[in-house]
Simulated scan of single mutants.
Amino acid sequence: MHLEIAQSTPTAAAMARVVQAHYPLGDVVAAEFLRRSFNQVYGLTLADGRRVVARLCAERPRGEPRLQFEADVLQHLRARGCPVAASLPTTTGEVAVRITLPEGEREVMLFEHLDGEATTDLPANIEAFGRGLAQLHAAGEGLQSSAPHYTLNLDHLLLRPLQHLLHAPTMTAELRPQLEALGLRLHDRIAALGELTQVLCHGDAHSDNNFITVSESENGADQRQAVFFDFDDTGPGYLAYELAVYPWWLHPRSVDGVWSEKALARWNHFISAYQAVRPLSEADVAALPMFVAVRQFWLLGEYAGRVPVWGSQAMPLDYLQRQVKVLTQWEGLELAMPGITAADASD
């Protein structure tokens, strides 16, 4: 009997053999399976003491992984002094190696290991994260790459995820028109704002995809810098979306969710530090809370597209019912903008 496989999970030892066979790095002496989420991630230690991270790419609702573009982005940012986890080429100079698994071929991409501390709620770290993201956007200007890439526009972030969501197996005839109307109203509200700032987006900058390094400055004070990794959602797109990912991460995604004082303080530290490097336009400020809701639609579409791997109860009916209430509430969501106001930014 032939059984179809949705997604298998190679062991850490198997991934070590793949890396040792296809990368010019010498022996792999230790391996650890770190995480299974949207991708599967492994930590490897080489005989010379170096550490690397292997990412086994999963099938994704947003389309095939754009690995060459991701590698080009990392090379471009590194060349401009932006601290990122660069990708490592295979023995034959490719950006990834394809391996055959029971479900078919999947790609493994290898990256430098980054050291540092988590951003957490430490104000100095959050400010370093905000400054670092602004510097990353500045460094991303002028990228030259002909490789296929994601474009983080409303089709990619909202309309296609909405379609995945509407066709989820647990969706009901009652909820479907409510969620569709919410998504289309959100689309129209953003479109009515006119032209919004575009940047080369990290795509998933919610503070868990960066570390903070601490060094001593000439005067003996701590000098903190954000170092970034996990660029598999990268592409040109809306600055307002990129910045909305962090408040989306902070805001309770529950029916009666309200900003806590701690979450507001973290948002204030982040956006003030960002604007000190790159001021925002009035239109981008207005778009920010709308893109918090866009991010939730994007996530729901990703979940719906992964039902064959995660199961239908990754999105049970009561969860979908809550989403209608949360997204309805978020139609009136506001984000405080401390320090530099929208009017100041548009002068």
Rank of each mutant, 00 (worst) to 15 (best):
P123M: 04
Q40S: 14
L114F: 12
P102R: 05
V53S: 06
G116L: 11
L56A: 12
R106H: 07
Y23L: 01
R98Q: 15
R62I: 15
F69Q: 10
G130C: 04
E105W: 01
E70Q: 15
A30W: 00
F111V: 07
H113I: 00
L110T: 11
L67Y: 10
P24W: 13
I5H: 06
T91W: 11
T45A: 14
M109F: 02
V52S: 09
V18K: 04
A58H: 15
Q68I: 05
G81M: 04
T9E: 07
A96N: 05
M1I: 15
V18N: 05
A58K: 11
Q75P: 01
E112Q: 15
R80N: 12
V108A: 11
T100R: 14
E117Y: 08
T11Q: 09
V95G: 02
A58I: 09
V95N: 09
V19T: 07
F38S: 08
R62E: 14
V19E: 00
P65N: 02
A85K: 11
D27P: 00
A96I: 07
H76T: 03
R80G: 12
V108D: 04
R80L: 01
L3E: 04
V28Q: 01
S87M: 12
P89E: 08
A79C: 08
L110K: 13
M1E: 07
G63P: 10
Q68C: 07
A79G: 05
V97E: 05
R50W: 02
A12H: 00
V53R: 12
E105N: 08
E94T: 15
M1V: 13
T92G: 10
E117S: 10
L44K: 00
R131L: 02
D121V: 08
H22D: 11
L25H: 07
A14P: 00
T45M: 10
V41G: 06
T119F: 09
G43D: 07
T100V: 13
S37V: 07
P102K: 10
